[in-house]
Design a protein around this nucleic acid. Structure first.
Lengths: 219, 219
DNA sequence: AAATAAATTTAGGCTAGTCTAAAAATAATT
DNA sequence: AATTATTTTTAGACTAGCCTAAATTTATTT
């Protein structure tokens, strides 16, 4: 297997690649990993020897498909553990990250598949980020705030941007929950507030400020 | 915090101390840790510098109260995770150990307290071994097989020795489960079979062979 | 009590991952 | 195009944990 450190480098490279869309620089990795460029270079050589990254001196790096598979597996575990901590163990939003950073390196296929089952196979974590499946396949579309969608779009609520209890309570009261179907009935021109239908039943109005904090994907 | 390796050494020393009842030898630790005596000596120096063990060259080691606290915390986590895997994630007996060995090193007070709560604060793991509480306090008595007890003893069922599905199914059918009150009504002299009352309700007969595989403590 | 055997420690070396300081390569500026 | 600035890599060193081989201490026999 791969060491914790190797896994963390691969995850960092994956996420940086997502952001920049091309080769990732040594300095960018160093910053993300809170380490020094020289240390990164050492690790890049090792990962390259193991065929986990494509690396040529001074040219930046990309993941090989083998490396990407490892990264996606770590991300899958991270997101499922976050879900588990939040939903089953009453963790608060600001408490989950550090623990999930540790749990994501636990090596046991059975463990993570059972956690997945226990959570009833969620497709998105509550940040709206997609959870890769056991084969590393990832839902093509990423969640966007519902402020980005247009009239008549039919969506699935996948997460929130603002995780304060105040906001979560507002959602609760309004009757919007993870997994709900949301249809955009109307976009009010002058303030971009929305009229939406939840699960084909109730119809509510929400401000643009609220809309910006609700994540969804097209159904 | 302490490294995984340090935690594993402390746990090994704790368990060996339980077995031998006095100072633990370098060789015994080496064998338990599947490593070489020279490596153990190195680690003993480090643990001694950190005041986690009492160590004098050639004289064997004992844990300091600080070291014992760490060991008990690791054991607590190990036993709670085993419980969790077995009860909540449908793991089999032979599957839990390796994963619990990893999970026992996850560092988060909140995590382990929530797991404890989620399991409804078990006092014994299903081996019948006591689970230390959050302060490292451990139930004084260890579980013994009910074959050790005598007429009129009132017990709490804490675990099993034989974890085969065949035996577990037998217990299930007979109506004996973890946490049940078991009263020894009669010990048959010639074959040491038992008549027991479960939860003050049903009374059943079990052979000595079965009794030897059921763990309990005095109520 | 001396000699031998067993256990333990020291000495020196290895790998993974990190660091600082200096050298080399690439990018930006004049 | 030449110079300067930035980025990246190399060189050499450090710690944690591990190893083998040799030295030392303790235990056991004779």
């Amino acid at each position: 297997m791969h060491s914790f450190t190797e896994e963390n480098y691969l995850k960092a490279i994956y996420k940086l690649t997502e952001q920049v869309g091309s080769e990732v620089s040594t300095n960018a990795i160093a910053e993300k990993m809170s380490t020094k460029a020289a240390s990164v270079t050492d690790m890049l050589k090792k990962l390259s020897d193991k065929k986990l990254i494509n690396y040529q001196k001074y040219q930046g790096v990309t993941l090989t498909s083998k490396g990407e598979k490892v990264a996606l597996s770590v991300i899958r575990k991270h997101r499922l553990w976050e879900m588990f901590l939040l939903e089953k163990l009453d963790f608060k939003w600001d408490e989950v990250h550090d623990v999930a950073e540790q749990l994501e390196h636990i090596n046991s296929d059975k463990l993570i598949e059972q956690i997945d089952k226990f959570l009833n196979y969620p497709k998105f974590d509550p940040h709206g980020d997609p959870i890769p499946d056991a084969n590393g396949k990832i839902q093509a579309q990423k969640s966007k705030s519902i402020a980005h969608y247009i009239k008549n779009d039919v969506l699935v609520m996948t997460g929130v941007v603002d995780h304060t209890t105040a906001f979560l309570q507002y959602l609760d009261k309004t009757g919007i929950a993870l997994g709900d179907e949301i249809k955009i009935k109307e976009v009010v021109f002058f303030d971009r507030s929305l009229q939406i239908t939840i699960n084909k039943k109730t119809t509510v109005f929400i401000s643009n400020d609220v809309a910006k904090n609700i994540l969804a994907i097209k159904k």
